[in-house]
Amino acid sequence: MENTCGADAWVYSEIVRDHFFNPRNLLLDESKYEADGYGAVGSPACGDMMCMWIKVDKKINKIKECKWRTFGCASAIASTSMLSIMVTENDGMDLEKALKINPEQIIDRLGGLPDRKFHCSVLGHLALSEAINDYLNKQKNVAE
């Protein structure tokens, strides 16, 4: 083709593209996965749904593993993939810090998202909060 003025440039950044086609930390089958915490937000009826599983290093309160699956668009897939990396890189993220992650930080790491796709990146960190709170509740129950 001639004169397409970079039409091959995607609607999304290269990083989003990479994470969409090669999502990291997917959990294809949770039946044998022993998660310390589980969170699910959204529903098919709402048009998007996110499930997240975490494993926690209990001694140092850091996330060891973060796995997920989503019924969502390219932005949702890429931002969850990126989130799962952010909370597990460098020996894992502190739970307190992970609870405070916001969509802007994820979008930043993705090299940006179109404005209207902002909401697509929201479900991931909400599911993560649910999973962390699930873990914390379980710990509390054990302690009691």
Partner: peptide, 22 residues
């Protein structure tokens, strides 16, 4: 989800459209 499907097909050179919100 339709947009994901559209973009995956796009990777294979197949161009379609979707009714998805996304």
């Amino acid at each position: 989800e339709g947009e994901s499907l559209l973009l995956m097909l796009d990777k294979y050179g197949i161009f379609c459209s979707t009714g998805s919100a996304c």
